[in-house]
Nucleic acid binder design. Structure first.
Length: 477
DNA sequence: TGAAATGTTGGGGCG
DNA sequence: ACGCCCCAACATTTC
């Protein structure tokens, strides 16, 4: 009789490019595929939008496994992570426990404890990397420290070999014993209130959806990416982020696919962006406190001007700046926001409104289908200027010129702020600068159909520069 | 992976 | 022909 290996899925919801699975296959184990949803156990439990995605990703993974003759074991989320795991191990005489590592700080800590405990009990426990391109412990700079700036990180690693995993999931031998799997519905991942209509329109949250998107994107759009990726009014980005986050496609298989086109703009475009994702994971691994604390500690006491009303206006897409509002509404409707617009809304929240970047990170965490702790943390610290490669404090995005420059057709704003759809392009990104009659003939009165700006750009910019400059001076004295 | 203010240059209009 | 002004275009610096 074959020995049973429990394969614990996390952010690796796929059967190819999966080291833990492949190792179990190669060793001839009978594989018990396992998932557990933790609830209220740790900081940064997954948010609303990622719960929606996870539901469908698990459903899809279960179907893929079933097709190959296995059954995905969903452990009851009423038990804490360690107890649920121990129960399954005991129930099914498991001899080996395998997983691909998560680099979230809480998971790193949890997994170390569990690994030690299981080893004490005489189990074979082994973890693998399938989530990122390289191990964070192997990417230190010449003085043995983690990189804090992207460009040296990129230069040092871009030519380092990326593993290729030969995947043979069809050769797997799946555990055939009787299981008491919890129904997926018991995880209650889908919302009670139906805010997810737009999600279904935009996404196919399955492995097949990931592969279809890769096919649309590569190689033609991947080559164009460098010039279209900043244009929210075009379909210029890869849209791979949620698939990568849940591991429905692995970063290694994706990079190999993209590189097979052998085009320089792919290397300096989308591949470089995938190394930003890599950089974010390595940063969080080495600086686990940065989910809430600035990477550069001198920013710890920055005097934010916390104001719930301003935060709420930003969250709801009611700031009176069309490019900002369009982004926030796209986020709410689809669980996703164009990357360029993420920078614009981030800058607006942190600089113009002087709200703490942590508030922005919390909101994104709850509303993005690609909410990834490393990426979210790095992105917000970047825009706040307190993190790796941080934007200098005086870099304040102008939401008007950014709108004109990157949503140059205005289609993005017209889609997400439909009340402005008849406003001439000339005034679309700054309706408050339009002659009132011009607005009226477009059916808009500011303060009625569309809000007045909650702050003037000039004031917001001046306030931000002042606050940041004063803070900087106070740190130096 | 800014923006705005300030400085420089050079062409054209014009007295 | 020449100087002067204007201003767009570009470059530099400052926030």
């Amino acid at each position: 009789m074959k020995k049973v290996a429990l394969l614990w899925f996390r952010y690796d919801l796929r059967l190819s490019d999966n080291d833990a699975l492949q190792w179990a296959i190669d060793q001839g184990y009978e594989i018990l595929p396992y998932y557990h949803l933790s609830q209220h156990e740790q900081e940064w439990e997954i948010g609303g939008a990622t719960r929606w995605w996870l539901h469908h990703a698990l459903d899809d993974l279960a179907a893929q496994i079933k097709q190959l003759g296995g059954t995905l074991h969903l452990a009851s989320s009423e038990l804490p992570t360690d107890q649920a795991l121990l129960k399954t191990i005991a129930d099914h005489e498991v001899e080996a426990v395998l997983w691909n590592r998560s680099y979230e700080p809480a998971h790193v800590k949890r997994d170390a404890t569990i690994k030690a405990h299981l080893k004490e009990q005489g189990l074979h426990v082994q973890s693998f990397n399938s989530t990122i391109l390289y191990e964070p412990t192997t990417t230190l700079n010449k003085s043995g420290k983690p990189y804090r700036v992207f460009t040296p990180f990129w230069k040092a690693l871009v030519s380092r070999e990326i593993a290729k995993v030969e995947s043979t999931p069809e050769a797997a031998s799946w555990y055939g014993g009787k299981q008491e799997s919890a129904p997926l519905q018991s995880y209650a991942l889908l919302p009670d209130i139906k805010w997810d209509g737009g999600f279904y329109e935009m996404w196919d949250p399955t492995r097949a959806g990931a592969l279809a998107r890769v096919k649309t994107f590569s190689p033609k759009n991947a080559v164009l990416y460098l010039e279209t990726r900043d244009r929210p009014d075009l379909d210029g980005t890869s849209l791979m982020s949620p698939y990568l986050h849940f591991g429905q496609i692995g970063p290694r298989e994706l990079v190999h696919t993209l590189r097979s086109a052998n085009q320089p703009t792919i290397e300096s475009g989308i591949v470089r962006q995938l190394y930003w994702r890599e950089f974010a994971h390595h940063l969080l691994y080495h600086f686990p406190q940065t989910t809430t604390q600035p990477l550069y500690e001198k920013y710890a006491n920055f005097p934010w001007d916390e104001n719930p009303a301003l935060l709420a206006a930003w969250q709801k897409g009611q700031t009176g700046f069309p490019i900002v509002d369009a982004g926030m509404r796209q986020l709410w409707a689809t669980g996703w926001m164009h990357n360029r617009v993420r920078m614009i809304v981030g800058s607006f929240l942190v600089k113009h409104l002087l709200q703490p970047w942590q508030e922005g990170a919390d909101w994104f965490w709850d509303t993005l289908v690609d909410a990834s702790l490393p990426n979210n943390t790095m992105g917000w610290q970047w825009i706040a200027g307190s993190g790796a490669d941080g934007a200098p404090y005086f870099r304040v995005f102008n939401p008007i010129t950014q709108g004109k420059k990157f949503d140059e057709t205005g289609e993005y704003v017209r889609k997400w702020c439909p009340e402005l759809k008849d406003v001439p392009l000339q005034y679309l990104h700054a309706p408050f600068e339009a002659p009132p009659l011009e607005l009226l003939s477009a059916g808009v009165t500011l303060g009625k159909e569309y809000p007045n700006p909650i702050i003037s750009h000039a004031d917001g910019r001046a306030k931000a520069l002042d606050a940041f400059a004063k803070f900087k001076a106070s740190q130096e004295s």
